[in-house]
Amino acid sequence: MNYTEEEITYTELHTEYVKLYKNNKGLLDSMHYAAFVQQGILPQERHFKRLFSDYFIMYKPQSIIGGDLYWVGQKGNLKIFAVGDCTGHGISGAMLSVLALSFLNYIVLGKDFTLIGEVLDEMDKKWIETFQQGIELGYNNDWMEIGIGAYNTETRELQYAGAFSKLTYIVEDELVELVGNKYPIGGWQLEKERKFKTHQIILPKNTTLYLSSDGFKDQFGYKTGKRYGSRRLKDFLKQIVKLPMSNQKIIAEKEFISWKSIEEQTDDVCLMGIKL
């Protein structure tokens, strides 16, 4: 059969289209599967429930899988929780998040420490070691922002350390922010050995704590063209703080979606709330 020039071009185009479609579908399928695995690596409800009866976790990767992470664990009398945000999102972010989780498991559960800041000191060391070659070639400077808290149920003392991260707590309608150090885990380094300060404070029962990555406050709103912002987020948390945590999660998700509207999600989102 004789094809016209137009028909040949159409056939070629169609073949290429089908190739690309299959390729893209294959990639998306692997990402969806990876999301399933990432969910398995992150703490499950039963891990939370052993430690905190009233909590919520809102986790929304920007691109199926993501660079945000959360972690909970126990060490002696300390109930430990963390929220982290690795550079990038999608596949590269997710790989870093898995690395970060393995460091947390190793350091918190395997090493001795007195102050929670020491966990971040150690994480920074391990991170630099891991990417040493990349750093030497002047190439890699991935980093992680992370906030980590340790609550002693007996003494009611909260320890907090942060790398570019803040912990918000609300007690009796008063909102307080504990601010971490202004440098990340990894990334560009000035100091030989980076040290992270541990905040220590006694907190009464019914204090509610929040740890968040930047994704919520950085979300662009379709209707306003503005970012949600940390001030608005703080006001929002003050509004919902008295509700049961499971309700807070639902309302926070609604708030996020209503702000974002049809705008694309700007970054990975991770918001953790814990009622002591």
């Binding site: 990038g88 400077n141 991935d142």
Partner: peptide
């Protein structure tokens, strides 16, 4: 107005 973390990496460079 807004820079995501990956962009900051490159701005650093």
């Amino acid at each position: 107005i807004y820079v995501n973390s990956t962009s900051i990496k490159f701005i650093n460079e």
